[in-house]
Nucleic acid binder design. Structure first.
Lengths: 179, 179
DNA sequence: GCCACTTATGCACATAGTTGCATACGAATG
DNA sequence: CATTCGTATGCAACTATGTGCATAAGTGGC
């Protein structure tokens, strides 16, 4: 249901094709959701069959036609329903933790590679967040509360990523120091 | 593959039945992984068919028989392979963030309920972590590095949960203050 | 004596997500 | 002129996870 809800929210904001949604996931919603193009097209088709969205085919010169989806009244109702239902706390599933439980079988070299790579990926992620923030929320406190709201998600994303990075450095120092 | 790897790790440590694994997930691995009993039994059966584990049926008086699984050489090899392959950074998918993008349609009362509930669940989670820590790692620094390793995962779990709680309080104060 | 809980296993169906493949055209790169 | 990239859509097969139901016996509370 969550992908469906995310699609409803972005289509409510502005009608879009599957391809547009994919771009939004990459550019402004990277810290919220992501899905492959296959998954998006499939879900939009299902939502159409469920009456939640309406497609309009837009012909283009020299390009494939675009199918632009617009949210319906039924779609708005479903979204409202979803917003009002509290979410369950997400189940914890961190494969990396498992490796720490197999410490003795986990070669030190593999561990260092893994931690270094994770460090890089998280640093990159911070960069992406920073770019989104600069583009969409250059001055959040001058925005009205309802426009500012999405910015809070960036703040948490950043905080969590920094917490991970702190931990990586602590673990790396400790275990390297112990050798 | 991750559930499979987690099962291999716990079975390597000590042979166990599906039910035992379920108990381990609840008691000492709550911050690492969790899965329903259905999923665990199914996966163990598949791993048996793949030659990664070997079952031994243990009869019990007045109770259903237990199927105790033991890791095989092929299982150990598969685990080694998994440990040496770096994991991809997990894809970001936070349904709660989506609600912040639908701020205007998200009733203030529903929002307050949601945040309060999340706060409770996270506080409870900290409690679980504390219990695990007290039971398994009462004095981590007196343990040898390879015994201490799993404790790092608890540390990160705690740090991340605290980061969430901080953010909930910040957002709540700000938006309540703005009213 | 009934009800809920714990121990112990599992099947069947449904939803969610990944991976591989396919099509078609324009524009830029070499 | 061949290759790669971007725009734009999708099917098919597979893996992973969730939900509902089923069975069977002992244990403890009211």
């Amino acid at each position: 249901m969550s992908l469906r809800a995310v699609l409803l929210i972005t289509l409510k904001d502005e009608p879009a094709s599957g391809y547009d949604v994919l771009q939004r996931f990459r550019k402004g919603l990277a810290h919220v959701w992501n899905a492959s193009h296959q998954q998006i097209y499939r879900e939009l088709e299902r939502m159409y069959r469920a009456g939640l969205v309406e497609p309009e085919t837009v012909a283009q010169a020299g390009r494939p036609d675009r199918k632009v989806y617009r949210i319906t009244a039924a779609g708005e109702a479903a979204l409202q329903q979803w917003l009002e239902t509290p979410l369950d706390a997400p189940r914890v599933r961190v494969p990396l933790y498992a490796k720490f439980f197999a410490w003795e079988s986990w070669p030190a070299e593999a561990r260092r590679r893994e931690m270094a790579r994770l460090r890089e990926q998280l640093t990159e992620r911070l960069e992406v967040y920073r770019a989104i923030e600069q583009h969409w929320f250059p001055d959040p406190w001058s925005m009205p509360a309802e426009k500012r709201a999405p910015w809070h998600t960036l703040r948490l994303g950043r905080k969590l990523t920094r917490t991970w990075l702190e931990w990586i450095d602590e673990v790396t120092e400790e275990e390297d120091g112990a050798q």
